[in-house]
Computed example of a mutant assay.
Amino acid sequence: MKIKINEAGMRELYAGIAKKIEDADRRFRRQHEGYPVAEVKPRVKSAFTAIGVNLPEQQIADYAKAVSAREPFKWVIQ
């Protein structure tokens, strides 16, 4: 079996995922930015799982630190 990948379709798929993450990031930061990491970190996983994004533990920890410190976070979709 041979699978053919539509490049335009893949770009559209990634753009949709990026938009979901950006929207979730904005909502999450409005509610949690500046709070202690210990309060932010436990809420990260559920916030992003709710939109169908599963984050590795290290990315959860790094994101929680960025939100707590009101710093930007570089998202990498893998």
Rank of each mutant, 00 (worst) to 15 (best):
M1L: 03
K4R: 14
I5L: 01
I5C: 05
I5N: 02
N6S: 02
N6D: 12
N6A: 08
E7S: 15
A8L: 06
G9I: 00
R11K: 15
R11S: 05
L13W: 07
L13N: 02
Y14L: 15
A15Y: 00
A15G: 12
A15V: 03
G16H: 07
G16F: 10
I17Q: 09
I17L: 13
I17F: 02
A18F: 00
A18R: 10
K19I: 00
K19A: 14
K19L: 06
K19V: 00
K19Q: 14
K20Q: 10
K20A: 00
I21D: 01
E22R: 11
D23W: 07
A24P: 07
R26W: 09
R26E: 14
R26M: 09
R27G: 15
R27H: 14
R27Y: 15
F28K: 12
R29A: 04
R29V: 08
R29L: 02
R30S: 13
Q31K: 15
Q31A: 15
E33F: 07
P36R: 00
P36I: 04
P36D: 00
V37W: 10
V37N: 00
V37Y: 11
A38G: 12
A38S: 09
A38V: 12
A38Y: 00
E39L: 04
E39W: 09
E39Y: 07
E39S: 04
E39Q: 08
E39T: 08
V40P: 07
V40L: 11
V40T: 05
V40C: 01
K41I: 11
P42H: 07
P42I: 11
P42L: 00
P42Q: 09
R43A: 14
V44S: 06
K45W: 10
K45Y: 06
S46D: 15
S46C: 05
S46N: 12
S46K: 13
F48V: 04
F48E: 03
F48A: 01
F48H: 05
T49M: 01
A50R: 04
A50G: 02
I51D: 05
I51P: 01
I51G: 09
G52K: 03
N54L: 08
N54K: 14
N54R: 02
L55F: 10
L55M: 14
L55I: 08
Q58E: 15
Q59N: 11
Q59L: 09
I60Q: 15
I60W: 08
A61Y: 01
A61S: 15
A61D: 13
D62M: 02
D62P: 07
D62L: 06
D62T: 07
Y63R: 12
Y63E: 06
Y63S: 13
A64W: 10
K65W: 12
K65V: 04
K65N: 06
S68E: 02
A69L: 12
A69V: 08
A69E: 14
R70L: 06
R70Y: 11
E71R: 14
P72G: 06
F73G: 01
K74G: 10
K74Q: 10
W75H: 13
W75P: 13
W75T: 11
W75G: 12
I77P: 07
I77Q: 10
I77N: 02
Q78I: 01
